[in-house]
Design a protein around this nucleic acid. Structure first.
Lengths: 181, 181
DNA sequence: GCGAAGAAGTTGTCAATGCCAACATCCGAC
DNA sequence: GTCGGATGTTGGCATTGACAACTTCTTCGC
C-alpha cells in the first residue's frame, strides 16, 4: 500500500458523486468518504478545505457538464438565434434528467448559498443567447424564459413529480411542451 | 422557573422557522434550539422524534399556509375555473415570495425525501382546478402547468435570481408574465 | 383528597462528524 | 544529496443526534 494515494482528489469527487446520487447531499461525510477510499480521515482536507469546498467542486463539475452540453447543442442548432436558444433549453433539461445527482448538487440550497456564482455562469449563456435573439416584447422576457427553464428542469428531474404527472419517460416532445412559449 | 415549559412544541417550531429563515435548513440544530429556548438538550425529543420530524412539521405548516392562501384566492376569483386556476397560481408564487423560509423548507431536498406527500397535497388542488377547467389540448397539459408554477415560484422566491434578472420587486404584472401560457 | 399513570423535562452517555494541529513520508527541484 | 513542499497520518476537541434512566408535574379515576 503506497503512502501516497496518487489520485485522491479525483477519486474523492467520483465517490462523492456516487454518495450524493443515492443518499443526497446531506448524506455526504468527509470521514465516510475517506473510509470508502481507504485513506485516513484527515486526508480529504489536503484536497478540499472543508465539506463546503468539496461540494463546491462537485457543483463546479456539474456546471461544467451543463455548459458543455448546452454549448454543444447550440453549435448543433446552427446559426439562428431562436433555434440556438431553444436547443440550449432542451439541453439543460436533458442535463437535469440525465444527471440528477449533478443537477441536484448544483441546485442544492446548501451549495447555492456558498457558491451562488454557479447558476450565474449558466445564466450567462442564456442571456447571451437571448440578447442576440429576439427583440424584447415585454419587460420580463428574460425572467419568463428563465422561469420556464427552471420549472421544466425541476419537474423533469424529480422522480416524484414525474410519477405524479404520469410522465415517466422524458421525451423530446415532453420537453418541448414544458418549454413552449 | 416552572418545570414545565407549557408551550414548548409551538415555540420550538417558531424558533426553528426563525433559524431556517436566516441560516437555512442546514443551520438547524435540535440542541441549539433547546439552548435558545432555555430548555435541556433532551427536551425537544418529547415533541419531535428527531430532526427530520421537526422539519416535517415545519414543512406541514408551510403546506398549510400555501393551501390556505390558494384556497382563499380561488374563492375570491369567483366561479370561472380558468380564473380560479390563475388565481391559485398567483397565490402560490406570492406564498413563495412572502414566506421564503417556509417555501424553502417545503421544497428542501432533505425534507422532500422524507415527506414527499407535502407537494402532492399542493398539487391535488391544482389538479382539481385543472380537471374542472379546460379540455386537454395536449397530452402534457398538466405537466406544463405545474412546470410553469414551479419555475415561477423558484425564480421569484430566490433573491439571487431576482437580482440577476433585475426583478427586485415582485409585482402582479411580473407574476402574470412568469405564469403566462 | 389521593394515588397511580402518563406527559413533559433533565441528565448522562455514546458514536459520528467537522475541523484543527502536530507529525510522518514521499517527490521533485536545485 | 538535501531540502522544501505536497500528500497522508494520528490525535484531539467541540458539536451534534440519538438513546436510556431518572425526576417532576398534571391529570384523572376513585
Amino acid at each position: 500500500m503506497p503512502y501516497h494515494h496518487g489520485n485522491l482528489r479525483a477519486e474523492l469527487l467520483a465517490r462523492a458523486a456516487q454518495v450524493v446520487a443515492d443518499q443526497g447531499v446531506e448524506g455526504l461525510s468527509l470521514r465516510s468518504l475517506a473510509r470508502d477510499l481507504g485513506v485516513s480521515h484527515g486526508a480529504p482536507a489536503k484536497h478540499f478545505r472543508d465539506r463546503a469546498d468539496l461540494l463546491a467542486a462537485l457543483a463546479a463539475e456539474g456546471v461544467a457538464v451543463a455548459e458543455q452540453r448546452m454549448a454543444a447543442a447550440a453549435v448543433e442548432a446552427g446559426s439562428d438565434p431562436q433555434a440556438r436558444l431553444a436547443a440550449m433549453g432542451r439541453a439543460y433539461v436533458r442535463f437535469a434528467v440525465d444527471e440528477p445527482s449533478l443537477y441536484g448538487t448544483v441546485n442544492h440550497p446548501e451549495v447555492c448559498r456558498v457558491t451562488p456564482e454557479s447558476v450565474t455562469r449558466l445564466l450567462a449563456g442564456w442571456i447571451d443567447a437571448i440578447g442576440g435573439s429576439a427583440p424584447s416584447e415585454g419587460r420580463y422576457e428574460t425572467a419568463t424564459f428563465v422561469a420556464r427553464m427552471v420549472g421544466a428542469a425541476e419537474v423533469a428531474a424529480d422522480p416524484g413529480w414525474r410519477e405524479l404527472l404520469g410522465i415517466e419517460d422524458v421525451t423530446d416532445e415532453l420537453i418541448d411542451a414544458l418549454l413552449a412559449a
